[in-house]
Amino acid sequence: MTGTISSYISLLPLLSTVFTTLGASSPIEKRAEAPVKTGFNRVWWENWGHKDGIPHNWVYNLGTSYPGQVEQWGTGEIQTYTNKTENIRVVNKVLYITPKKVKDAKGKITWTSARLEGRKGNQWACADGKKMLVEASIKLGSASEAQQKGIWPAFWMLGDVFRDRGYKGWPEVGEIDIMESVNGLRQTWGLVHCGIYDGQKPIRGPCNEPDGKGGFVKGVGRGIWNTYGIEIDRTSKDWKTEKITWLINGVRRHSISGSEVNNATAWDFLAHRKMFILLNVAVGGGFPNGVEAAQTPFSTTIDGDNVGMQVDWVGVYQQI
Results as ranks from 00 to 15, higher is better:
Thr21Ser: 02
Asn57Glu: 04
Ala136His: 02
Asp160Glu: 10
Leu185Met: 07
Phe155Ser: 08
Phe276Asn: 05
Gln319Asp: 12
Gln187Phe: 10
Val316Cys: 13
Leu278Asn: 07
Gly169Asn: 06
Trp225Ala: 10
Lys237Ala: 13
Gly166Tyr: 03
Ala127Pro: 14
Arg252Phe: 00
Gly129Thr: 07
Leu15Pro: 11
His272Tyr: 09
Leu11Gly: 12
Ser26Arg: 04
Trp124Asp: 03
Met1Phe: 12
Met275Lys: 14
Lys243Ala: 12
Ser16Ala: 11
Leu278Val: 06
Thr82Val: 09
Lys108Ala: 12
Thr75Gln: 14
Arg89Thr: 00
Gly285Gln: 09
Gln69Val: 00
Val261Thr: 01
Lys149Cys: 03
Trp239Tyr: 15
Ile97Ser: 05
Asn280Phe: 05
Ile138Ala: 05
Ile109Trp: 14
Gly150Asp: 03
Leu12Ile: 09
Leu140Ile: 11
Ile230Arg: 06
Ser10Leu: 13
Arg89His: 05
Ser142Met: 00
Met309Thr: 11
Val43Phe: 12
Val314Ala: 06
Met309Gln: 13
Lys37Val: 15
Ile54Glu: 04
Lys93Arg: 13
Asp238Arg: 14
Gly285Met: 11
Glu71Pro: 15
Gln148His: 00
Lys93Ser: 15
Thr4Leu: 10
Pro99Val: 01
Tyr317Val: 09
Trp170Thr: 04
Trp313Leu: 03
Trp48Phe: 15
Val251Ile: 12
Ser137Val: 10
Gly195Leu: 09
Gly150Lys: 03
Trp111Gly: 01
Ala24Phe: 02
Leu270Phe: 05
Lys218Ser: 10
Asn87Phe: 03
His193Ala: 13
Phe287Met: 04
